[in-house]
Design a protein around this nucleic acid. Structure first.
Lengths: 197, 197, 197, 197
DNA sequence: AATGAATGAGCCTTCATTCAT
DNA sequence: AATGAATGAAGGCTCATTCAT
């Protein structure tokens, strides 16, 4: 078997292993050896490809982020009404691929780590902005700008909260219910807005 | 001369130091020495009083929880309408005492740690149930039971989400806005319910 | 046995162990574990007292330096003629205490390490200046200032060279011969100076 | 297409890279990767050609030594008086080619390493003997054998000392001054000898 | 001829924890 | 009541070295 061109494979395997390790333990506090072991390589190789633990973690988060972005773009493609756009954005966050114990735990761990790591915080901020603007792209046609902004914030917070609660297996457990809650929130706010016009 | 009756003072000082350390660093990943140092004692003493790091952390979380409980009880005392009860519960979570960077960071860190620690998870579950039942105590008079349940879940998730976002200094920053968002959510759902009756 | 007040003893033991380890291996490239082992403690304790390997090495060099200084001061005390001062300075460098394989090897290792470590370089520079001024304190009465300066440099270089050669067990092996060579150099230069006057 | 006859070029490039790396860092403590990188090849190739780090270092030292030997032979060619021979030997050691920061640092590093490596010590001993006999080839005509021997030792030590001091940028910095000091030493000793005859 | 891939061994450092005083 | 002394265990990281291609 050819022993060349392994780099992308190893990188990917290591990132997957990182998600798996973090997801299972629920913390970024996993060892390089554990991660490397899951990827079937030595910890030295992980260092070889990523340089340091921080960098592997950051790369992993970037990976998670780009997957979410890709999914969102795919979901938005073909939507036509503002309401459809909003629904698409929400449902992506709770899709089978994103709303998995493993992934959620990883997101959460990153959220907390972001409190001390500037690099991670920057990445999370990007995600926050994207989510916000994606929601806005629908809401802005249905509500006054200020109100749209507020509602987008609320929806984002609600999504984050549902993630947290899911991770701790408290309350709302399944994706469908979660989506319904967020949609519900927006429906209520939108019809409320209509009514008050 | 050996001082007597120091125990409660030391315990309290150590718990405060723990909150401060976690709050500042944004992680439970603080050393016993750091905590003990902030409390002005040796790390050996921290062990003497709490037995182990886990136990000190659990005690700290219990402390946070009991403060919140006490505040909530105080806030509920004297409320008379269901709506007032709901507002009281919400406002406690964003009161000056609770909604401080330090405390929030600590809560968050505990949330994440709870993913691996059964002890912490149990404590958090208690908090979750209390919040839920406190919200229910108002909602149940205004909505059908099932619906009340759902809305309580939503409100709880929203609160958690706002905490997280505050910790990362993303979006909604101040308590007033946060409260308004939650109240707004409930208002919308309540009037929506009214309207559909 | 009392377990208190160990710090100075441990520090000293660790410094001695460092000299011994470096002396035996001929390099600063010794492990903390090796050093700690020689001192009969764990490597963690070495870190506890010195913070890091660099700092232990620097402390060790400082120790060597201060011993040399103390010996020199003692040797100079009671000297009366310029020539006696010069002889005293030279003989200290080749005294039984200083001119030992272990100590010499350590000095040499430090010399080389100083090329990359600013901290060590600074320390060595101090030693260089002291030696120079000690030599000058005698020479200045016997030669014109410029010439004295030059001769002091030459003598210092000669001493360094003899150390190196001793460390490698090449040529001149014993202290007496070494001293004689340096004295000889100075005698020659001094009488030469006389003659040319 | 595979290039042929690369071996000598690569070997030379690797040796040069080794000198450069050691010279820049002031230690033998350089990595194979660093060296290979400077030579523009992979570290695996360095192993391919030299077998191991030790061997590359030894080869490098041998190279340094043979350059010095060649220079010395060239310098001696054409000298006619004993004094001229001595001067030639000295000046080679401080020639532009030899007395360069890079080369000096490398020599020094090798000196120290020689304390633990028998192979390097053997090489250095060869150099020591050559220097000694080269100096003797002049001195022996001017002084009694014993005295010539001693003076040669002194001169060699002085040269070594000047190297060390140059490496640490302490005192005597330039080659001319260094040469003058050594010549001076010999002059003094020689005239002293004359005078006492 | 040359290299990317891969690893084992080892080192520095940190930290919770224990113990004697 | 309180602490300095001390350590074992573990983790991140580096590096020389090997191997298949």
């Amino acid at each position: 078997m050819p022993k060349v061109g392994m780099e992308p494979l190893r990188r990917r395997a290591l990132i997957d292993a990182t998600i798996s390790a973090i997801g299972e333990r629920g913390t970024l506090d996993v060892t390089m050896s554990d991660i490397a072991g899951r990827a079937g390589v030595s910890s030295a190789l992980a260092h070889h490809y990523f340089g340091a633990k921080d960098l592997l973690l950051a790369a992993t988060m970037r990976h998670l982020l780009s997957e979410l972005t890709a999914d969102t773009i795919a979901a938005l493609k073909g939507t036509e009404t503002p309401v459809a756009r909003i629904s698409a954005v929400i449902s992506v966050n709770f899709s089978d691929k994103q709303f998995r114990a493993e992934t959620i735990a990883a997101w959460l761990a990153f959220y907390v780590e972001a409190q001390k790591s500037t690099a991670l915080r920057r990445l999370l901020r990007i995600y926050g902005c994207r989510l916000h603007s994606n929601l806005m792209s629908g809401l802005v046609h249905l509500l006054p700008r200020d109100e749209a902004h507020r509602i987008a914030e609320g929806a984002a917070a609600l999504i984050d909260g549902l993630y947290i609660r899911h991770a701790l297996r408290e309350g709302i457990p399944d994706a469908a219910t979660a989506v319904a809650l967020v949609e519900d929130y927006l429906d209520a706010k939108l019809s409320h807005a209509d009514a008050s016009r």
